[in-house]
C-alpha cells in the first residue's frame, strides 16, 4: 500500500511540473475560443501531415541519393504534369481549410442578439469597464503586489507573488451562459484586449468602436493581457474576468450600482 502511494506520487510529480511546460493553446470555455482551438488543431495536423510527406521524401533522397553511396545524377529537370499536380493538390487542401475557417469567422463576427453590453476602454496603462445597461463603471489596473515586484531589481521573488502580472485590483465580472457584447475603444494609443480562454483579441483604437462577443460556459477566473504595444507599461496592464452564474452576477451588479449611487450622494 505504501509502495503504491509512493508510485502514484512519483508519477504525479512530473505531471505537476509538466503543467508549467505548456506547449499548446488552452482549450476555451466559450464557443468562439473553442472554435479557434479546433481550427488551430485542424490546421496544425494538416501541416504536420504535409511536413511528414515532404520532409520524408527529402530525407529519403538525402539518404539514398548521395554521391558517397555511388548515386549517379539523373538528367530529368522538368515535367509539366507534376508541376500541375503539386499546384492543384495544395489548392484543394487550402479550399478544405478555407471552408471551416470562413464558417467560424462568420460565427465569431456575429454580435447580434447579445443580452448585455460592456464597453471596454484602454488607457495607458489600465482598463476601464462600463456596463452599459447596468450602470456599473470602474477602472482595473495591475494589482499592487505585482506592481511592487515588477520594479527594476525589486528583490521580491516574483514566484511568490499571487498571479504575478496577471492580477488586477478590480476584476471584470461577467455572467455565465449569457451572450455578452464587448465594445472596445481607447483614449490615448492603441491597445488590444485578450483573454485567450474566452475570446480571441481585438484592438482598442482611439476613435474606433470595435466589437466582439463572448458567452462563457463555465464559472471561473480567466486572465489575459494587453496585446498591442502601448508604451512603456504595455506588459503591465492585465485583464481578469470572473465569470459567475447569472444570479450572482445580478447581485454583484446591484451591489456595485448601490456603491456608485452612494458615492455620488457623498
Amino acid at each position: 500500500m505504501n509502495r503504491l502511494s509512493i508510485l502514484i506520487v512519483s508519477m504525479l510529480v512530473p505531471l505537476t511540473t509538466l503543467a508549467d511546460w505548456e506547449v499548446n493553446m488552452p482549450r476555451g470555455v466559450s464557443p468562439t475560443a473553442n472554435a479557434a482551438y479546433d481550427l488551430h488543431m485542424l490546421i496544425f495536423y494538416i501541416t504536420v501531415v504535409i511536413g511528414i510527406v515532404v520532409f520524408g521524401v527529402m530525407f529519403y533522397s538525402i539518404y539514398h541519393h548521395r554521391k558517397s553511396k555511388g548515386a549517379k545524377p539523373a538528367s530529368f529537370h522538368e515535367s509539366t504534369t507534376v508541376e500541375v499536380i503539386w499546384t492543384v493538390i495544395p489548392f484543394v487542401i487550402l479550399v478544405g481549410m478555407a471552408i471551416p475557417a470562413t464558417k467560424t469567422l462568420i460565427m465569431m463576427e456575429d454580435t447580434r442578439n447579445s443580452e448585455i453590453t460592456v464597453k471596454v476602454t484602454g488607457y495607458q496603462w489600465m482598463w476601464k469597464y462600463d456596463y452599459v445597461e447596468d450602470d456599473v463603471s470602474f477602472f482595473s489596473k495591475l494589482a499592487d503586489s505585482s506592481n511592487e515586484a515588477r520594479q527594476l531589481r525589486s528583490k521580491i521573488d516574483v514566484n511568490k507573488v499571487d498571479n504575478y502580472l496577471l492580477n488586477v485590483d478590480n476584476e471584470m465580472v461577467l455572467p455565465t451562459n449569457t451572450k455578452v457584447r464587448i465594445l472596445l475603444t481607447a483614449s490615448d494609443v492603441i491597445h488590444a484586449w485578450w483573454v485567450p480562454e474566452i475570446t480571441g483579441k481585438k484592438d482598442a483604437i482611439p476613435g474606433y468602436i470595435n466589437e466582439l462577443w463572448v458567452d462563457i460556459k463555465e464559472p471561473g477566473v480567466y486572465r489575459g493581457q494587453c496585446t498591442e504595444l502601448c508604451g512603456k507599461d504595455h506588459g503591465f496592464m492585465p485583464i481578469v474576468v470572473r465569470a459567475v452564474p447569472k444570479e450572482e452576477y445580478t447581485k454583484w451588479v446591484s451591489l456595485n450600482q448601490k456603491n456608485r449611487v452612494a458615492d455620488k450622494s457623498k
Partner: peptide, 16 residues
C-alpha cells in the same frame, strides 16, 4: 511549388 521543386532537384541527384 518552390519547395517541391527543390526536393525534386535533389531526387535522384548525386549529393554531397
Amino acid at each position: 511549388v518552390k519547395v517541391f521543386n527543390w526536393v525534386a532537384t535533389m531526387w535522384k541527384g548525386s549529393m554531397t
